[in-house]
């Protein structure tokens, strides 16, 4: 129906490192406004004495033995890199 007044789409898109077109911004703001309006329902629930659930698995503090194990060979680890040179990923210049 309407975009949420709280949803500053430019700010959020910047946080998400996502370039959006003006059309996408307008469309997403409206659609996510509807979704956020729906989500407002959660404010009706009394959660004052409830602990949060991060995941439903009965597993906590899993430790791995500190032992070296063979990993992927460099060639395989880099096989999907967009550009590479001498076993390194090449990126645009960061420092002038």
């Amino acid at each position: 129906m309407s975009s949420s007044p709280d949803l500053n789409i430019d700010h959020i898109a910047k946080l998400a490192r996502l370039a959006l077109t003006p059309e996408e911004k307008a469309k997403f703001a409206q659609q996510l406004g509807d979704v956020l309006h729906h989500i407002e329902q959660l404010k009706k629930v009394d959660v004052s004495h409830v602990e949060p659930t991060a995941h439903a698995a009965p597993v906590f503090n899993v430790w791995a033995d500190d032992v070296a194990r063979p990993g992927l060979p460099v060639e395989r680890a880099l096989q999907n890199a967009p550009t590479q040179r001498e076993h390194m990923v090449v990126v645009p210049k960061v420092v002038e």
């Binding site: 989500i39 629930v45 959660v47 409830v50 659930t53």
Partner: peptide
């Protein structure tokens, strides 16, 4: 939003 949803998740479970 997020913390509240995690608490409601506890109630759902």
């Amino acid at each position: 939003y997020y913390l509240r949803a995690q608490k409601v998740r506890t109630l759902i479970r």
